[in-house]
């Protein structure tokens, strides 16, 4: 009751506060959206070069996008796109299987290695990622996976091999499914495998989608591992290295607007996926905080 009254008859002071809050939010929102707005503008800019004397472009064109997908001579973006797509598809299959398997086992099964595994995962998480990466390169080299198209296999391995350590979010989700549903299925005659595939998986669609998407996105946005493992093999570059290269001194004048176009091209699907997934991200985090 009280609240209703207050709402209908805002005091002048309250109104001022509300106005200021909304003004502040508007300013902040502009700060946050401006760089994204600017990159979209740049991707349509007609004049080349990274640095211009005006903030807004003088002319607009669609040629940056066309150049990005047709110019195969200097920086072969279509090829990079294909490379990344292949890697992403395989990586997605393996990582999803790894993450879901480990999460399900840790959430639903009880075995002696369970606690040690979780502790080991925590300890390994404290090492800087690069430490393993440099040595991974040597191991891949010893296995002959650092030359030619074998680099793709190398990258797939690097991206998916250790995903079994990232079980927290999916495990948190599985933990929320009542155990009695599993038990009912077991009494109904299901094996653990059947519980996994016919009960838990259908009930966990959101987290399965989340896992598939995150593992699909990973190769598109990583440039560090890719750079270390590809080294100078230009025909094996992924999109991220390509974009990174476009900003290097030798290319930046010619390619800067194409970089913007490329950034827009890969950002749109990822942004859509991310906005769709943020719900699971929040839920997963809440779960991780709780447990």
């Amino acid at each position: 009751m009280n609240n209703e009254l207050e709402k209908n008859k805002l005091s002048p002071r309250r109104r001022l506060v509300n106005f200021l809050v909304h003004l502040m939010l508007a300013v902040l929102a502009i700060i946050w959206v401006l760089p994204i707005f600017w990159i979209v503008l740049t991707s349509f800019r007609a004049e080349p070069g990274a640095y211009t004397s005006t903030f807004l472009p003088k002319g607009y064109t669609f040629n940056n996008y066309i150049k990005l997908f047709t110019d195969r001579n200097v920086l072969n973006f279509p090829k990079m796109f294909l490379n990344t797509l292949i890697i992403a598809i395989f990586c997605c299959i393996f990582s999803t299987f790894f993450v879901l398997s480990v999460s399900y086992s840790l959430s639903r099964m009880r075995f002696g290695f369970r606690k040690p595994y979780m502790n080991i995962a925590m300890i390994l998480g404290l090492f800087p990622g690069f430490m393993a990466m440099v040595a991974q390169y040597f191991i891949l080299k010893a296995l002959g996976l650092t030359e030619g198209s074998a680099i793709r296999i190398g990258l797939i391995i690097v991206y998916s091999a250790c995903t079994g350590l990232g079980f927290q979010i999916a495990k948190g989700f599985f933990d929320t499914i009542p155990r009695s549903i599993d038990e009912a299925a077991i009494i109904d005659g299901a094996t653990q495998w059947q519980v996994f595939t016919r009960i838990t998986m259908p009930l966990s669609k959101p987290i399965v989608i989340y896992t598939v998407m995150t593992s699909f996105i990973a190769p598109w946005v990583d440039f560090v591992f890719a750079k270390v493992i590809c080294r100078a093999n230009a025909d094996q570059f992924t999109v991220a290295i390509g974009l990174w290269n476009m900003l290097q001194k030798e290319y930046i004048y010619q390619w800067y607007t194409c970089f913007a176009a490329g950034a827009v091209v890969i950002s749109i699907p990822i942004a859509i996926l991310f906005i769709y997934m943020q719900r699971f991200y929040v839920e997963g985090m809440a779960g991780a905080v709780k447990g």
Binding site: V102, Y104, S105, F113, L124, F127, A135, Q136, V158, G164
Partner: peptide, 25 residues
């Protein structure tokens, strides 16, 4: 089932995380 599900991920972690770390150390 946990053995079936965890073997590959554990091998992956062992070969591409633990071995490299020990090597680096």
């Amino acid at each position: 089932l946990h053995i079936t599900l965890m073997t590959l991920p554990c091998l992956g972690i062992l070969i591409f995380n633990i071995v490299p770390l020990v090597y680096m150390i």
